[in-house]
Simulated scan of single mutants.
Amino acid sequence: MRALQALSLVLGVALAAPALTVPALAATEAPKPPSLSWSFDGVFGTFDRAAAQRGFQVYKEVCSACHSMNLVAYRNLRDLGFNEAEVKAIAASVEVTDKLPNDQGEMFQRPGLPSDKFKAPFANEKAAAAANSGKAPPDLSLMAKARPHGPDYIHGLMIGYEEPPADVKLTAGQSYNKYFPGHIIAMAPPLAEDAVSYTDGTKATVDQMASDVAHFLMWAAEPKMEERKRIGFQAILFLIVATGVFYAVKRKVWADLH
């Protein structure tokens, strides 16, 4: 009898557990960010160079103060439509430590070159963590591919800041973001109206800047996407033509046997 009672108790707890945990998990899940229509979506999608260039400007003037992009070199910006002179000027606008010492054996600073990777805002991860409440800001090189629906996530995160509900208490350095998992984020709102002055005259609203920087980060995460799609399309076209040729040859060879 006691064994049956114990088994009933275990089964009751097991059946009740999902009902207790699912609402708790659902309460901490962030709402899905708005799903936007991106120019690079679909089989024939391509990057919008103007949007990506604006996004680079947002990264350079706003995001690069905290976030590195260690996998992207200045010369890669040629793929976004920047000419050689512009790339050299962008690279030379920063001072970097040369990889080799001078004749006195000392490391020295020099203007950046197109072959250099984007300059990181901090000397190392520990320095980045010390300047940001103990946690280093993530590198953004692959951010658009590191999250599900990455561009939508980045755009949503940028526009998702709002006043917290009455029952949510924030500590110093925390902000409330409706699209961030858990909603409590250590990054202050990075964008504000007219935070940058776009060189092409586009109005720099928060939504516009968020969309542009998401577009740029998608390009940074997958710079060969257009080439990959083009090769894939050519391969499919070749297979279709080859299939037709092989079928015609088969009919010719076997014609006398039917």
Rank of each mutant, 00 (worst) to 15 (best):
A3C: 07
Q5M: 13
A6K: 15
A6P: 02
L11P: 02
V13N: 07
P18S: 10
P18T: 09
L20M: 15
L20P: 06
T21N: 05
V22W: 01
A24C: 01
A24M: 06
T28W: 01
T28S: 13
E29M: 12
K32V: 12
L36R: 13
R49T: 13
F56T: 04
Y59K: 04
Y59S: 04
S64P: 01
C66H: 02
N70S: 13
N70T: 12
A73F: 00
N76G: 12
L77P: 02
L80P: 03
G81E: 04
F82M: 13
E84S: 15
E86M: 13
V87E: 07
K88S: 14
A89T: 14
A89P: 12
I90F: 01
V94G: 07
E95C: 07
N102C: 06
M107L: 15
M107H: 08
P111Q: 12
G112V: 06
G112M: 04
K117M: 04
F118M: 12
N124E: 05
N124W: 00
A129D: 06
A129I: 07
A131Q: 09
N132Y: 00
G134E: 06
D139Y: 01
D139E: 03
L140W: 01
L140S: 05
L140H: 05
L140G: 05
S141N: 08
L142K: 12
H149A: 14
P151S: 11
Y153N: 11
H155W: 01
D167M: 11
T171L: 10
A172L: 09
G173K: 10
Q174N: 09
Q174Y: 02
S175W: 01
S175C: 02
Y176C: 12
K178C: 02
K178P: 00
Y179F: 15
F180I: 04
G182K: 03
I185F: 07
A188W: 00
L191C: 05
A195D: 04
T199P: 01
G201S: 08
T202L: 07
V206S: 13
V206T: 14
M209Q: 08
V213L: 10
A214V: 05
L217H: 05
W219N: 11
A221E: 02
A221Y: 01
E222D: 15
K224W: 00
K224N: 06
K224M: 05
M225E: 13
G232P: 05
Q234M: 14
I240H: 02
A242H: 11
A242Y: 11
G244P: 01
V245H: 04
A248Y: 00
V253C: 11
L257W: 03
H258C: 04
